[in-house]
Computed example of a mutant assay.
Amino acid sequence: MTRNDQRRCIAESLRALDVFDIADGEFYDRGEVEDVLGLVTDDGAWYEAAGVRRLADLISLDVAELTVRDNLALIERNRQLECELARLKSQIGGAHAAFCDFVCECVEGPDLHTNAYVDGVVAASRVIAEIIDKAVEL
């Protein structure tokens, strides 16, 4: 049985213990808790060292568990960043469409005559549109 399975088993066993309502609050029987935790005592004052070490081993996280925990945190952060990236792509796409509409209106407007300035705006808008398209594809 792995440490995680052992921890879960002990936790379930502790939760299953009978709770006693006393005037000062809820309490568990000390002997029952010690039994679940695997703590053995001869006189109620001293615990056998092996039982205490076993309990310490169950509480501590080993390197593999720490790695898994860290990886899960990284996966969650990656999911958050993916959501943010999708939102930004949507905003860029909307800005791109609005920009293209604006340029088309400027170029195709009835009062606008083609000149070097207009040609420069159209050329610049095409370059900007290409950059935005590439950014959206990423």
Rank of each mutant, 00 (worst) to 15 (best):
D35T: 15
V121S: 03
L55Y: 01
F102P: 03
E105W: 00
S60N: 08
I59S: 02
V103S: 14
N71A: 14
R69L: 13
Q80G: 13
L74P: 00
D119W: 04
V121M: 05
L14D: 01
R53C: 08
D111A: 14
A123Y: 11
D111M: 09
N78A: 15
A16P: 07
I132H: 01
R7F: 01
V122D: 10
V122T: 07
I131S: 13
I131Q: 14
P110W: 05
E108V: 05
E65P: 06
A49H: 04
V36D: 00
D24F: 11
N4F: 04
D21R: 09
L66N: 14
E105V: 04
D29G: 02
E76M: 12
Y28F: 15
I22V: 15
T41P: 02
A116P: 00
D43K: 12
I75A: 12
R69A: 13
N4A: 08
D133K: 06
C9T: 12
D62M: 04
V136D: 00
L14F: 03
E48D: 13
L88H: 08
T41I: 03
R53N: 14
E34D: 13
G31D: 14
E82Y: 10
D111S: 11
Y47H: 12
E26K: 06
L14G: 06
A124Y: 04
D5G: 05
E130T: 14
I128W: 13
L58M: 04
Q91M: 07
V68Q: 10
A50G: 08
I131K: 15
A124M: 04
I59T: 09
K134P: 05
L14W: 09
S125D: 00
D21T: 13
S60G: 00
V36C: 00
C83M: 13
M1C: 02
L112W: 07
E108S: 14
G109M: 00
L88S: 05
N115S: 04
Q6P: 00
D24R: 08
